[in-house]
Design a protein around this nucleic acid. Structure first.
Lengths: 210, 210
DNA sequence: CCGATACGCAACGGTGTCGTTTCGAAAGCT
DNA sequence: AGCTTTCGAAACGACACCGTTGCGTATCGG
């Protein structure tokens, strides 16, 4: 973690032998509650800057002390919170590149419709410059897995001949994901069911004649 | 404007005849300074929520009174400020669709490298949900012109046969712009000079074989 | 049981912003 | 001139957080 060991770890202190903390152990439940509250508030539209320790403590049903004992600053707390996010990715069929890409993009579109995801994405976009360390964390746990899923499908297509051998995989990735991102953010309500399909088909076929 | 006429306009009051304000007129300079300060602070990374009237007043060299006299709340001030933004778009050559798209995307990439644009984009992304009225404004003055520029080029290509007649213009637009957006936000430093070219060429030719 | 530590809670002094008000000094009109 | 309105500046009381501290209680090891 990041600043977990302010006084000591939770069960660490390996070598010293007699080092067992000797006292009431930290409540694992409180820790969970704090992180949950943090994510909740973020998911309600709070930017990192507006997050207040008091609000988190209150929401978590916890004393501020309990928070400060574990994290010395807000950024560390948020970083650890983001790190707990699991990314449930849709499984792809593996039959055709086209189908798999549509599946992934449709999932992306669906996620973008959820409030929680929207807010997390907002943070990713807007607080990225201000809290680079924090964003590294977020990109790693939330963005990168999705990016990898798309990249793997594209790469597979290149390898097995479903796509051109000279395909620029990174650009393809940006094109597909970026198009969906663009639509979910600024596409004026035109989020139809066949959107993923339209994007994928156009990226596959191109728009130049023949 | 939005709440400009709290007590009266600046020189309005048309019909009533005797209606001339009769007193010291409002300083046009102060108004400019306030708006400039607002944009400055935003451009320095402030989210809308963190913007403080005090900071704006101080930055503008103006009393808070002068601000409150004109705008009853922060959102109106920000909305009016955003409305003053001009969008200097690159002129396209009009020779070939490919060249024009590369020009537009390269300009987009270049703009995304500037701090001011980055911050404005951040606001557009993250505060969009929280301040929908405000975003309508911003989209209209900043996003839509660029979207239109790309769309016009694509549409021209469709019309004159440089692109397939059945091209989905909106998807093409999302694909091109979205790819660049994606790269500038999360492309790990791989912002090479030929990026615009690579994106455009791939969108044109597609990635399916033949 | 004892010592140690963590718990939730409430309070501390300090800071920053809020929106409003008051002030003396411009700056316009008649 | 006199009147009106705005100007910048400063102060107001109110509130929200900050990070810290003390309190009484709970929960561990020895």
């Amino acid at each position: 973690m990041t600043t977990q060991e302010m006084t000591h770890g939770t069960a660490g202190q390996a070598t010293a032998g007699a080092g067992r903390p000797a006292g009431r152990p930290r409540s694992e439940k409180a820790e969970k509650a704090i992180i949950e509250a943090t994510l909740d508030l973020i998911a309600e539209g709070m930017g990192v800057a507006e997050l207040s320790i008091e609000a988190i403590a209150s929401r978590a049903g916890v004393g501020k002390t309990t928070i400060y004992r574990r994290w010395s600053n807000k950024e560390d707390l948020v970083a650890d919170s983001l790190a707990t996010l699991k990314a449930p990715l849709p499984a792809v069929g593996g039959v055709s590149v086209r189908d798999d890409l549509i599946t992934l993009l449709a999932a992306m579109q669906n996620e973008a419709g959820q409030e929680r995801t929207r807010c997390l994405m907002n943070i990713a976009m807007s607080d990225a410059d201000r809290y680079p360390r924090l964003m590294g964390r977020f990109v790693k746990v939330a963005v990168e897995p999705r990016r990898k899923a798309v990249r793997d499908v594209v790469q597979r297509g290149v390898d097995n001949g479903e796509l051109r051998p000279d395909t620029d995989v990174e650009v393809a990735l940006a094109t597909l994901s970026g198009a969906m991102l663009w639509y979910t953010k600024w596409g004026n309500g035109e989020l139809t069911d066949d959107l993923a399909e339209r994007i994928v088909d156009q990226v596959l076929s191109g728009i130049a004649p023949l």
